[in-house]
């Protein structure tokens, strides 16, 4: 049964890595800064999941709290203070 678990592991890691690249691409490609910041938040959560699979629970906890909570909040404050969303789409 070991090879089934190994195959499952590889599949989950592959899907998460693809998600990581897609969300990073979305964060860069969106013209609207608000969409871009929300994509960055999703990116952080996927990265935290990958850290859990790579057996780094401490780093995963820090990345989840910092990336999805604090940094996103600071980005949103900046967007609201500058009023610059930079176009739509």
């Amino acid at each position: 049964m070991n090879w089934v678990i190994a195959l499952f592991d590889a599949g989950v890691i592959g899907v998460l890595l693809i998600f990581l690249v897609i969300s990073a691409g979305a964060a860069i490609a969106f013209r609207n800064v608000l969409n871009s910041v929300l994509a960055l938040s999703v990116f952080s959560i996927v990265l935290a999941l990958l850290f859990v699979i790579y057996q780094a629970p401490d780093a995963a906890m820090a990345e989840a709290v910092v990336g999805a909570g604090l940094v996103t909040a600071l980005f949103l404050v900046t967007i609201s203070k500058t009023g610059a969303t930079g176009g739509d789409g």
């Binding site: 629970p57 401490d58 995963a60 906890m61 820090a62 709290v65 910092v66 909570g69 604090l70 909040a73």
Partner: peptide
């Protein structure tokens, strides 16, 4: 357990 000053501190700030 997993965790520590940095993670917990950020949770409190959140």
């Amino acid at each position: 357990s997993p965790g520590g000053g940095f993670q917990g501190g950020v949770i409190l700030a959140t």
